[in-house]
Deep mutational scan, measured.
Amino acid sequence: WKVTVKGVEYTFDNPEEAKKFAEELAKKKGGQIHYKDGEFQVH
């Protein structure tokens, strides 16, 4: 499971962890999460 933040990729074994990480980042940066092709992208 991948989380991509401004072109930087983070990989997680667990989808729950990936989702949590993406949500935290989106909150911090005031961005939005897009889920696409099996990965979370924070913009």
Rank of each mutant, 00 (worst) to 15 (best):
E39I: 14
E23D: 08
Y10W: 14
L25R: 02
E39L: 06
E9W: 06
L25C: 09
A18D: 00
V3M: 01
E17C: 04
K19S: 07
K2Q: 05
E16W: 13
K6N: 15
E16N: 10
E39K: 07
K6S: 14
V3R: 00
A22H: 01
E24H: 09
H34M: 12
F12I: 00
W1Q: 02
P15I: 15
G7P: 02
A22R: 02
W1F: 08
K28S: 12
P15R: 15
W1K: 02
T11I: 14
V42L: 08
L25V: 13
E39F: 04
V42P: 03
A18Q: 01
G38A: 05
F40G: 03
K29G: 15
A22T: 02
K2E: 01
E23L: 09
K36R: 08
Q32S: 13
K2P: 01
K20L: 11
F21I: 02
E17F: 05
K6A: 14
V3W: 01
K29F: 15
N14G: 09
A22C: 06
I33R: 00
D37C: 04
E24N: 07
K27C: 07
V42T: 04
E23S: 05
A26V: 15
T11Q: 12
K36A: 13
A26K: 05
A26P: 01
T4P: 00
H43Q: 10
E23R: 05
L25Q: 10
A18F: 04
A22D: 01
E9G: 06
Y10H: 05
N14A: 07
A18G: 01
E17N: 08
H43S: 12
K2Y: 06
V3K: 00
V5F: 15
G7Q: 05
V8D: 10
K36G: 08
V42K: 02
E23G: 03
A22I: 05
F12E: 00
G30M: 02
K6E: 15
K29V: 15
Y10I: 05
K27M: 12
G7H: 06
A18V: 01
K20M: 10
E39D: 07
F12W: 01
K27D: 12
V42W: 06
P15W: 15
F21L: 04
E24M: 10
H34Q: 11
E23H: 08
D37A: 04
F40H: 03
Q41D: 05
H34K: 10
E9H: 09
A26H: 03
K29N: 15
E17W: 04
K36I: 13
H34V: 14
W1R: 01
K27G: 12
Y35I: 09
G31F: 12
H34W: 12
Q32F: 14
F12M: 00
K29W: 15
A26E: 04
G30I: 01
P15N: 07
V8I: 12
K27Q: 13
V8M: 13
T11G: 06
H43R: 08
K2L: 10
G38D: 06
K6H: 14
L25K: 04
V8H: 13
Y35T: 03
F12Q: 00
V42H: 03
T4E: 03
D13G: 09
K19P: 00
H34P: 03
V5K: 01
K19R: 14
A22F: 04
E24T: 09
K28P: 05
E24P: 00
E16Q: 12
K2W: 06
K29E: 15
V5G: 06
E16M: 11
K28H: 11
K36W: 09
G31D: 07
F40V: 05
A26T: 07
D37F: 02
F12R: 00
I33L: 08
E17M: 08
E24R: 08
E16H: 12
K19Y: 14
F40S: 02
A26R: 06
V8Y: 14
Y35V: 07
H43W: 10
V5Q: 05
G38V: 02
D13V: 08
T4N: 06
V8N: 10
K2S: 06
Y10L: 03
K36N: 10
Y35N: 04
F12T: 00
K6I: 11
N14Q: 06
D37Y: 03
K29M: 15
G30T: 02
N14C: 09
K6G: 15
P15H: 15
Q32T: 15
D13N: 10
K19I: 10
E16D: 11
K36C: 06
V8S: 09
K20W: 08
E39Y: 06
D37V: 03
A26D: 02
G38T: 05
I33P: 03
W1Y: 10
K27L: 14
K27P: 03
